[in-house]
Design a protein around this nucleic acid. Sequence first.
RNA 1: CGGGGUGUAGCUCAGCUUGGCUAGAGCGCCUGGUUUGGGACCAGGAGGCCGUAGGUUCGAAUCCUAUCACCCCGACCA
Length: 578
Amino acid sequence: MKYSQLLIPTIKEVPANAEIPSHQLMLRAGLMRKVASGTYIYLPLGFRCLQKAINIVRQEMNKTGAQEILMPSVQPIELWQKSGRDVDYGETMARFTDRHGRENVLSPTAEEVVTSLAANELKSYKQLPFNLYQISFKFRDEFRPRFGVLRSREFMMKDAYSFHADDESLDVTYKAMYDAYCRIFKRCGLEYVIVQAESGEMGGSGSDQFTIPCENGEDVIVYIKDSPLAWNIEKAPVDALEKQKAIKNPPKPEEVHTPKVGTIEAVCEFLKTKPKDMIKTLIYSCEDQIIIALLRGDHDANPEKITQLLGGKANDLADEATIAKLTGAAVGFAGPVGLMEKADHVLIDLSVAAMAIGITGANKTDYHIKNVVPGRDFKLEGDNIQVADIRNAIDGDTYQGKKLLFKRGIEVGQVFKLGRKYSSKIGAKFLDENGKEQIATMGCYGIGINRIIASAIEAGNDKDGIIFPISIAPFEVIITQAGKDDDIKDAAKKLHDDLETAGIEVLLDDRKERPGVKFKDADLIGIPIRATIGKRSLAEGNVEIKLRAESDSKNVSIEKASEEIQTIVNSLKEKLNI
RNA sequence: CGGGGUGUAGCUCAGCUUGGCUAGAGCGCCUGGUUUGGGACCAGGAGGCCGUAGGUUCGAAUCCUAUCACCCCGACCA
């Protein structure tokens, strides 16, 4: 392929609206352009990267016996009403009415459609198990698209759905997918970490996330040094904190006037105390019920843990009106004393139960109460009271006595055991050996293809540009033709043709540009191997070969160049099992 | 959706506070010439309804109002 024939609009300056390296570099290297917030055009180079990642995913999926299909992007809302996810997804799911007045959605994922397929076609246990997947654009109307392609509204996803007669069969496929994902990310040249995750909106029992550690990741990974244990923050367990020594004859609770200081920080400032001596009272509503959650002031609530304790039911922080009605005070002054009886359910974090004494809201606007002793001034036991782990791990926490460590990561894939959530609602049933009707159990397995590219760039870049793993680079080799003499052109052309014939993906930079410009562009785009043919080396009958990831170059005779480059390509590929 | 910010040439940004003549710079682009191994130099040139719509004013990029878009911080997810 000739550079001069491709649209590769590289830019020298850093785009003003791009914050993180992958976003900036994808624009600068001419991989993509933005159409609107969260939607992008993949230009020739960017699309080649996507295709290469897709091919790896496809190969590994096919190896497991999964079958590729293609489902529609426009789906009838009825299917989503059956599963109840029209509500769960809410505004994130784009909807429109067609000319006939039918309600449609733009597919954010495809459990409903694939399960309805199974409902129609699945009759007998003899058909099971099977695993269907597709690679297609998904649309989610995110509250806040950001970081370029890392959180775009339209994105390329591989989504697979497996159907099984029983849990053992699901376990087998789940493991096969898990292993396939390991191979996929390895082949894409990504250093990944597998973390235990909550299944969230998807429902179901088990889930593992494949994340790429990097500074700009949106997920927080919690892990233990020299241990395979790792969790998404939403799932990370923490040891209960040691019970604080009880204070002898603790003073009585005392109301203090705290005018207009409703936040933890403001109260601490005002009363000269620390967040960890505060008790934070959060009020949730869940299916018309009122849930109160008590946390230490320096801790954050973990919505996933709370949802689990509520039996998976959707819950949200209560609105201002509900809080005012319940507490009789403005937001910021809620406290457990005298309030707990009014709630349907009270969740007390382990660390609150471990406190000896604390300060909390008085359920009276502009007042707090100090000298509140858990167990004395509010109950820790009762029919509607549960003491549990409902918070996010923070620095200093341990699990099984070992220190928890934190880093950020990008989620590139996730595998779920869905169970019968969708199959029961949509009616994916079959007859078993005994002629008895059974509901199929399911798994689903997603990979964000764009995120593979973006996270590879997050992980692989330097001041000059992208450093692509060879497996997903737009080209494997770039030939920089430095000079316009005929012998240079001819030698470059011949090397290009030889490599192309040998099946190497090679780009010939035949532009009428100065060598400096070509070197800069080659580095920016991040093609793993560069072969330079110019006056200097050609005079000695040599070609200069340089790896993007390394600083040194070497000279190889023009006759041996093609062979040598092929050897390097193969060795780079072998490292990634390509 | 809540909070903050930005819209001026293809890109990065000055100018706006304190309204005033023809709206600027660097980079990029076009032409000619000199260059040619790490984003060259000289000369000439094209390119802007100052996001959009109203308003104030003799006069608006600049002040006011509305609106749209984009970006950042929060709740979601591949």
